[in-house]
Design a protein around this nucleic acid. Sequence first.
DNA 1: CTTGCCCTTGACGTCAACGTCAACGTTTAG
DNA 2: CTAAACGTTGACGTTGACGTCAAGGGCAAG
Lengths: 122, 122
Amino acid sequence: MRIGDVAQRAGVSTRALRYYEEQGLLGSERTSTGQRTYTESAIERVQLIQQFFTAGLPSRTILQLLPCVESGHASPEVFEVLEEERRRITAAMADLAAARDALDRMIDITRNPTPEHCPSLR
Amino acid sequence: MRIGDVAQRAGVSTRALRYYEEQGLLGSERTSTGQRTYTESAIERVQLIQQFFTAGLPSRTILQLLPCVESGHASPEVFEVLEEERRRITAAMADLAAARDALDRMIDITRNPTPEHCPSLR
DNA sequence: CTTGCCCTTGACGTCAACGTCAACGTTTAG
DNA sequence: CTAAACGTTGACGTTGACGTCAAGGGCAAG
């Protein structure tokens, strides 16, 4: 597969794929003329990378974790990274829940306006 | 209160407070010599602003929502913004949950390594 | 052959919420 | 009074995951 196919099937831009390669997150073979070639497994890998990016992991951290996906083994340091990121994500979910609740209170108030609305915003 | 007090009590930098004012998110009185003065309610307001920033809302959107906190009323457009952001946050929480689950699978595998680990990563 | 779409590298642009530094005025504790 | 600590505006720097040209080469169809 060429880069455009992978991009379309994985739902990312070709620029993103080259960026992933630049960061060491995604490998590729080259044809004799220098064009990138990918296997089917690249699509799955890109989707996993995207999932981690969406969760707020920086590329350096993803770079640490990806080898563990392939080897099925993690050094103690990488294991600590795994658990640290898990904690980060859990905290982020709590923050989102808090903000969502704040929005819910605002939505509720704007639907049933009361003279004494201010205290209930806290 | 001066800006340093608000910063400390709200847990943000003075630079952030000036930025909020610049963006129209936070008002202040001025002394005769030009120094900013805040009321107690500023702290609560800053914390709400922070909560929204943490949830990924941009300052322009927060600027739309804040008047609704004070007035207790929302125009139809602002109301739509409220619900749209609620949907965004809900989706973001789902993404985080998915990434957390991926991490959990990796953690599980690195704890009990199996020869057939690869399929369970999907 | 040439048209049109795909690919390459390289390099600069973006966006947002601040950090940081400069140069200077203000308030406060001793 | 004076020095430390705090305040002001202005402006440039940071960070990360790409977007977006630019300039050129590769490849199947008609």
